[in-house]
Design a protein around this nucleic acid. Structure first.
Lengths: 128, 128
DNA sequence: CTGAATCCGACGTGATACTG
DNA sequence: CAGTATCACGTCGGATTCAG
């Protein structure tokens, strides 16, 4: 989502924006779900499991999730360096309602696809 | 989210992307919630209720929601023209799990804000 | 291994003006 | 009233390069 940053006058009406703006990017959910599945994972493991994420975006995504308190980061002062990532309690609690959405998407994404295929643009109707 | 479009190799693992990519923009959720509250609403009413949305983005958002089958669009051939928008059953069913997220956000957005304030960038620690 | 820095193109969004 | 068209700008994300 580009739920871009904003001086949103609806923050009160839509407190969800405060949070979902940050999770609505290309990778956050995928990282969270991967951590949920895999438990504590190293940077390189996350990278390989998500596969098509770039190093840059994985690092950036993890920073934000860490900053929001959804993911914990543990650095080991070894050579080579090792960094473990895991869900925090807050992060795990977030995924619960998120699974509700996931279930909905699984159940209805075919309906959505069908609607997209059946859709005819308003203009196109009278265009000919 | 810029859950931008993508040739996503994780569509199977993350079917939620198919759907949430589209809902993850700046206005979709707000429009859906507004329709949930207000029932059937005209374009101008939606515009005034959301207030800071531009005509362009409202129209674009409604097109996408309509295309995905979440919102219905009814045109009356009157002068001046009148167009009603309302949630479809699919749209209403989507909002149910979405409220789970909303509740989480309401319950925890303070935790998130607290985490953000408490956060110190990794570099900043050893930077001085 | 785990990043950060930079360059760059693509897309989302807003402002404005125009139309049926 | 209910849109569409055009332009300009900002951010996101990918590729690449450099570093501890």
């Amino acid at each position: 989502m580009s739920l871009h940053k904003s001086k949103d006058p609806y923050a009160d009406r839509c407190p969800i924006r405060d949070v979902l703006e940050r999770l609505g990017d290309r990778w956050s959910m995928l990282v969270l779900f991967t951590l949920e599945e895999g438990g504590t994972l190293r940077f390189s493991v996350l990278k390989s499991q998500i596969a098509d994420i770039s190093q840059r975006m994985l690092a950036q995504t993890l920073r934000r999730l860490e900053q929001d308190g959804l993911v914990s980061r543990t650095v080991y002062a070894t050579v080579p360096p090792r960094v473990d990532y895991a869900l925090t309690e807050l992060g795990a609690s977030f995924l619960k309602p998120m699974h509700g959405l996931l279930d909905w998407a699984k159940a209805h994404h075919q309906d959505v696809h069908a609607a997209r295929r059946a859709y005819t643009a308003p203009e196109a109707i009278e265009a000919r």
